[in-house]
Design a protein around this nucleic acid. Structure first.
Lengths: 375, 375
DNA sequence: CTCACCTGCTGAAACGATAAACTACCTTCT
DNA sequence: AGAAGGTAGTTTATCGTTTCAGCAGGTGAG
């Protein structure tokens, strides 16, 4: 990144003469030209390191820039260039560690490209999403990365009509636009396979609502893993949301029923659910984890490894997703009609204490009565 | 994963690569004017709802806007107006729930003003901080909200000399610039006073490093509370950082020493420390919380109430801080020399199970006793 | 000597939106 | 009838930057 135009802040602090009228109008390239006794074109040439400038003149210009504390006006550049250096990112929930990691990855990549990311928080609201899309259009951003709350194809199509490249995050979009997502089926398979490998057979899937995009896929993967293991069963408990409280409630419901034994392995649709359940198991009833029941979550949020019993989880390469989305956008901006791609990341198993160690201590009853519930 | 071609998308603000098709021209106000058969000024008047337009013409213009899909160019507007509608926010760590809540609050407020927030993640790096400040200057943002990693006064002073209003978040800055912060002394006092009120006398403060801005204040508040209670004592354990592992280590160190008894009440400088210690107390050694030792943390992160023993904490109104910072900036932009302010928010005690009652927590279901429900 | 071609610079025209100043045209008051 | 004023527009200058099209003056080739 060329920082020749970016004078250190210290300079302006030290070199600010007392008589100077506190720059209400910010200094422009014109002021620099006047001070250096050259034309604006020459200053521009110096700034953009064209070689048509003698070293003598270049030095005079740089000195003037330094003295005046000139900072290039991005709006003017953008107007002239027809587009900006920023890209827009719309996430449904900035407080969710998964999305903030995506944002972080995108930000890092954008900074490497010399640009920046405008992050908009749709907060699961389509109106808010539309608001940010409108804002990004006004800003003439290079493109939009969107983890859509509503129907992605509609949004993306609208963007595309205006010539704004878009990359869908978290879902595979129509072939007309690029996307970066994670193989949730593989993640569900991975988690369930792991529970089977540590000897569990009476499994449960806890998560919901089933309409939430990734969730159904995770369950599908779990079902596939179970299908491969003839003596294993999987029951499904649907929750209303993916929060801690829902997990706690689901665990208690599981404990309170008398007709069936407790599953010996549970796959939670995300880490928050698992955290809530862990709390219920350990604290309210004294269920041994992983002794009585092995648990695995999904997302591998930071708190998972800090839980009382470190939680096994499925890690999604969130930062890499953000970074990749930016790179995909860059490609598409270069050649809009050729470089469309769909990238599917593979999740990764992170085995921790909640699913490791000894098999159930007490004698395990034959698991033949537990039905598999599918919906 | 795409191969990492590190070719800059565009070389900062230099010329386009030769092959680039010069970014298709988007429809401008001129195109709309031509289509509606009026002058550009008339279109502008319609857009800005001035009353110098007959309803007949207005309708024709609106129809043209609709047909062409016109979207206003923010860069041109900004160039003309001399400033932009965005404000910059620099946080040290976007993944930290406290800061993401601040960002969220700022974002909401900015949207209400019709603007947007450009969020930069300094990641505790002064270089990165400087990079974002430079970027914001180029963008001619309305102002900068900064939770500084280094010396705030230097940064803010440099910004101010360029005519960029700045609001410092999290520290009281020099009187020349506005700031929004939290009364950490009061928070420390509140936490410690609470421990005293539930009958604890042999207290400990765990946190550090002492050089971290807020930490010293929290300790100071703790000391004040202890000074008011003649029969109480407070010992201080300094940690190297504020992470979960440091908390676990500190708790174990406390348990391993033989010369003194375990404190009966501990005030942790933040919730992560407390979480680590909780884990050590409950799981590794079987110390009863709050029976043997009452605990209180700081920040009230979401996970505090989801911990195995719901953690008492000191809540900082993070979203409100972000919102207030934006409002302060708006004020200062209106009248730069008059409306400088320092706002100090008062933190709030959130008493949960980890510091309540004398009975062991195990018999009781987790109950969230959060006194207020604003979030 | 002249033609062509460098070197190092300048002038002016964009880019899109806004606002001050100005022009018609129509009403109304004195 | 002529001055005054309102209505509905249009012209034009401007913001800061890049870039195309020159333009002197020097230099080497033919």
């Amino acid at each position: 990144m060329p920082d020749r135009t970016r004078r250190p802040l210290k300079d302006s602090m030290t070199a600010d003469p007392p008589g100077f009228p506190a720059a209400q109008r910010s200094v422009s390239i014109k002021d620099v030209a006047k001070r250096a006794g050259v034309s604006v074109t020459t200053v521009s040439n110096v700034l953009n390191s064209r070689d048509r400038v003698s070293s003598d003149t270049r030095e005079r210009v740089l000195a003037a820039i330094d003295q005046l504390g000139y900072v290039r006006n991005a709006a003017a550049w953008q107007l002239r260039a027809g587009r900006s250096r920023t890209i827009g990112l719309i996430v449904p929930d900035g407080a969710n560690p998964f999305y903030s990691a995506i944002a972080r990855g995108a930000e890092d990549a954008a900074v490497e490209y010399g640009g920046a990311v405008l992050v908009g928080n749709s907060n699961h609201s389509p109106e808010r999403e539309a608001h940010y899309i409108a804002l990004f259009e006004e800003q003439r951003v290079q493109g939009v990365l969107i983890a859509p709350v509503g129907d992605p194809d509609q949004r993306v199509e609208a963007l595309r009509r205006r010539g704004l490249p878009a990359v869908v995050i978290g879902r595979t979009a129509q072939p007309e636009s690029s996307s970066v997502s994670i193989d949730n089926v593989a993640g569900g398979y991975l988690a369930t396979r792991h529970l089977l490998e540590v000897g569990r057979r009476r499994l449960a899937f806890i998560g919901g609502p089933a309409s939430t995009p990734g969730i159904g896929d995770r369950l599908a993967g779990a079902l596939r893993a179970v299908a491969e293991q003839p003596d294993a069963t999987l029951e499904v408990l649907e929750t209303t949301d993916l929060g801690v409280a829902a997990g706690r409630a689901a665990a208690l419901a599981l404990l309170d029923r008398t007709d069936r034994p407790l599953p010996d392995g549970i796959f939670f649709a995300n880490d928050l659910l698992a955290t809530g359940a862990l709390q219920a198991f350990l604290l309210i009833r004294h269920v041994d984890v992983p002794g009585d029941v092995a648990m695995i979550g999904y997302d591998d949020i930071d708190f998972a490894q800090a839980a009382v019993v470190p939680l096994s989880s499925i890690r999604q390469p969130a930062a890499l997703i953000g970074r990749t989305a930016v790179e995909l956008l860059a490609r598409e901006a270069e050649a809009p009609d050729e470089n469309r791609r769909h990238i599917l990341f593979q999740p990764e198993l992170v085995a921790r204490e909640s699913s490791l160690g000894e098999a159930p201590s007490r004698t395990r009853p034959a698991s033949d009565t537990t039905p598999t519930t599918q919906h």
